[in-house]
């Protein structure tokens, strides 16, 4: 309960400070969702592919999103957008399989941010190791809107860490990675990786985590954000 109040006041403050109408609208649209149950709320599982790990220097390559509604992932609304970058994809292409040629059809970073704010309206973000994705989104928003902001997301890695520590399990290196975490819930192994598949994988992990926490009707969004 306390967590809900704290998060709502943070959101309230950030919404007040936001100058851009869309950003303001987005932050405001989240406020009622905080107290909803997982079943009632709308969420958006996201994953970003980047050229590197430094949000101040590296750039977003692609964004995958899968909405969660009534406790289920909605594949018909799943989307995958490539984002234009300055320079070449370089080294990271070997990881993501994104080639310069693919980027021709990509959105500009500004278009990507506008698109992202639209699809995430009223939806709580979900990501695995969320701080990294949020850092890139925040710096992307700052670049296109010219104002600083802080986003909010459910972090499936954090949820998993919390659960394991509560069970007094010794955290081994790598045990909180997406694949390893999924395996603990008997979720299938996905061989392929891109922003969309990882967003889907992250969303499925959250469904499993929520089930383990007591079910979609009982678990509140505030608990997941805390």
């Amino acid at each position: 309960m306390l967590a809900g109040i704290k998060i709502r006041s943070q959101l309230c403050w950030r919404a007040l400070m936001a100058k851009d109408a869309m950003l303001k609208g987005y932050l405001q649209s989240l406020m009622p969702v905080i107290d909803e149950s997982f079943m009632e709320a709308e969420l958006l599982a996201i994953d970003l592919e980047m050229t590197g790990l430094d949000a101040n220097f590296d750039q977003i390559l692609s964004i995958g999103v899968v909405p969660i509604r009534r406790g289920q992932l909605i594949l018909s609304e799943a989307q995958h957008k490539l984002v234009q970058i300055e320079g070449s994809v370089g080294q990271s292409a070997t990881i993501h399989g994104i080639l310069d040629a693919h980027l021709d059809a990509a959105l500009t970073p500004e278009q990507a941010m506008a698109w992202f704010l639209t699809v995430s309206q009223g939806k709580v973000l979900v990501a695995h190791h969320a701080p990294l994705d949020l850092a890139f989104l925040q710096s992307g928003l700052q670049a296109s809107l010219g104002e600083k902001t802080r986003l909010l997301a459910i972090d499936t890695l954090q949820l998993e860490k919390r659960r394991l520590l509560r069970q007094h399990e010794h955290l081994q290196e790598g045990s909180l990675r997406l694949g390893r975490s999924r395996a603990r819930y008997g979720l299938p192994v996905y061989a392929a990786h891109n922003a969309l598949i990882d967003a889907l994988a992250c969303g499925e992990l959250l469904l499993a985590q929520v089930a383990a926490m007591g079910g979609a009707n009982k678990v509140k969004i505030a608990e997941l954000l805390a």
Partner: peptide, 14 residues
């Protein structure tokens, strides 16, 4: 067909 799917997770606890 895949695009039309929605994905759910069912737990023994329910």
């Amino acid at each position: 067909c895949c695009r039309a799917l929605s994905v759910g997770y069912y737990s023994r606890s329910s």
